[in-house]
Simulated assay, not measured.
Amino acid sequence: MSEPKYRALRNRLVDAPGSVGERFRTARWLRFRAYFPDIDECEVVDLGGTADTWLRAPVRPRRLHLVNIDPHPAGLPDWISTEVADVTDPAVTAALGSFDLVYSNSTIEHVGGHSQRLRFAAAITTLAPRHWVQTPYRYFPVEPHFLAPGFQFLPLAARARLVRHWPLTHSRPDGPEEGLRAVVGIELLTRTEMRYLFPDSTLLSERVLGVTKSLLAVRGKGGSAHDRGLT
């Protein structure tokens, strides 16, 4: 299969409207709304998210503040504000103020080591009394960033080499240094670490065919986990 065909396959699996990934994201939004039925009235801070995610979402908070280390697009609607910052810096967290809810999706595995994850978790619990923190589960058979079976269990050097040739990666690195940079900053989490980082939260699972795909640390009001189908 040629590289354009592999890219088209990844798009059908993960990125395109109607893809498997899109269906999972839609189901997650519906669960999110079930857990936070007052989301329309909330001021939300999204740590690590993008405007596009929320503009395509079937839910909308009253106010949304996006915090990311990457630049944000211009021309966003007035209910979205943005900031380029790193909340693992306690000074940044202190300057942000307070919100009704912290939302973070597939970010905590990228912040850079256990100490940084501790700071990230501290920012989450400081910024709002409620939160929704999702991360891919380390022991799901397919690594979600590269769509490669067992990829996360390989030695770092092997991952850095493989990512330069694996056809389903989002963007293939050009050389050894770029390959290493693509993989070194991703550390998938286990249940034990998520419980350690969020001891006062409810830890929920998202499952595919009975196998846990993602973990959710949730704190806030809503129906029971059993009622929402999230256990």
Results as ranks from 00 to 15, higher is better:
M1T: 08
P4R: 02
Y6L: 12
A8K: 10
L9R: 11
R10M: 10
L13Q: 04
V14C: 09
D15T: 14
D15S: 14
P17C: 09
P17L: 03
G18P: 10
V20S: 11
G21W: 04
T26R: 15
T26S: 12
R28D: 14
R28E: 14
R28C: 07
L30C: 09
L30N: 12
Y35T: 06
P37Q: 11
E43A: 14
V44W: 04
V45E: 05
G49K: 03
T50M: 00
L55N: 06
L55Y: 09
R56F: 00
R56G: 13
P58C: 05
L66I: 09
H72F: 10
H72W: 09
G75N: 11
L76N: 08
P77L: 05
D78Q: 13
I80N: 10
S81I: 02
T82F: 02
V84S: 02
V84H: 00
T88F: 01
P90A: 01
V92L: 02
A94W: 02
A95Y: 00
A95T: 00
A95M: 01
L96H: 02
G97K: 07
V102W: 13
Y103I: 02
Y103A: 07
E109H: 15
E109S: 06
G113D: 07
S115E: 15
Q116F: 03
T126Q: 13
R130P: 02
T135C: 13
P136A: 01
P136H: 01
F140I: 05
F146H: 14
L147Y: 11
A148V: 10
F151C: 06
R159N: 05
R159L: 06
R161M: 12
L162A: 15
W166K: 08
S171R: 15
P173Y: 01
D174I: 00
E177S: 14
V183A: 02
V184R: 15
E187N: 14
E187Q: 15
M194S: 03
P199H: 11
L203Q: 10
L204K: 01
S205V: 06
S205W: 04
E206F: 11
E206L: 08
V208M: 09
G223T: 11
A225C: 09
A225Y: 07
H226E: 15
D227Y: 13
R228I: 03
G229E: 12
G229D: 11
G229M: 14
